[in-house]
Design a protein around this nucleic acid. Structure first.
Lengths: 184, 184
DNA sequence: ACCTTTGTAACACAGTCGTGCGATAATGAG
DNA sequence: CTCATTATCGCACGACTGTGTTACAAAGGT
């Protein structure tokens, strides 16, 4: 069997546990049960729990990142940018689950340097994307400032939806409003 | 002995464990060791682990909230608003720790309805504050949109600092820039 | 002096954790 | 066929978890 495929499969099981029961419920055994394999089998693919977590974190993040970078470059500027950014935000059930997972790993990373490293890579990638988008949107303004602000706004809105403080509809409207002011 | 004072003291110990070792290290025993009491003593003040966590979450949040509402109402509009908002953001070691704790509880709340309830209260309070500040800042614009955007920006920037993606200096500059554009 | 209440500690218990180890198939090279 | 390699599993171990119970010390009213 292909080692890497199985590792991805197990990482996906980690994600499902987090999305369903919360990050506090992640353990070797719960992941084994979720994936349908035995805990002993898990140890063949990941030496330790930390290794499993780090891989799962990287995996979920890469999945979103690759989906975004594979998207058509925004041509209809306003709507294109909106679509790209929404790809990382909790707009439907699937992306809500993904955002929940990423967010949970982020909190875990506050006390685990290995996870923190994975996340910083993701943040810089995401910032680069925002920078690229900002260059398309604004003409004379400071691109860096616009990019950082857009990046923070996207993540802030996402967190507010995950926390149940905003509905995803309000979130989309907020993003839309901001992009509208930016292109005006 | 005063029951409530001791409960606050134990809640503070929970916060210290989270800030130092991460949220994954919180247990009855680790909190007991941090506070200097025995685990049996903990059970006199909190029946269960969940009760302790919920109280600690509420406690840390209330501490910040009360500090803010006790601040002088912003008179010098621009700088006053900035000072109030920075009170919730990781600008120094103390507030970095507070933000770390709040953020960790937020992630925990994604899988624990009791903690989620505490947090939603905090979010609506914070939004009300942003709404009040937004009313001072803008003249004709939609106050609600401005408030929600400011709220999301503040939390987004905070998360980026906690994740090590932004320095607190860059965060402050970003907030300053945005408030500048808002008052212009 | 006695007894009740209260704060604190220590321990027992069942459960779960991460991890290591041995057993059992399956697979494929020689 | 043989045998080494690999995949998978189940289990055992020690450590740690949350929780309940019991024991003990201090205090205060009667």
């Amino acid at each position: 069997m292909d080692h890497d495929v199985r590792r991805q499969e197990l990482a996906a099981a980690v994600g499902r546990v987090i999305a369903r029961d919360g990050v506090a419920e992640v353990s070797i055994r719960s992941v084994a049960a979720e994936s349908g394999w035995s805990s002993g089998a898990l140890r063949h693919y990941f030496g330790t729990r930390g290794e499993l977590l780090a891989f799962a974190c990287e995996q979920v993040i890469d999945q979103v990142t690759e989906r975004i970078t594979a998207m058509p470059v925004p041509d209809g500027v306003r709507e294109g940018v909106k679509a790209v950014l929404l790809e990382t935000m909790p707009v439907d059930e699937r992306r809500h689950a993904e955002a929940t997972i990423a967010f949970s790993f982020l909190a875990l990373g506050l006390g685990d340097p290995a996870l923190a490293r994975v996340h910083r890579l993701q943040f810089t990638k995401m910032y680069e994307l925002c920078r690229q988008l900002a260059a398309h949107l604004t003409v004379g303004d400071d691109v860096e400032t616009t990019a950082r602000r857009l990046h923070a706004l996207v993540d802030g809105l996402s967190v507010h939806v995950l926390a149940g403080h905003l509905t995803s509809g309000e979130m989309v409207r907020q993003l839309d409003d901001y992009l509208g002011e930016l292109t005006a």
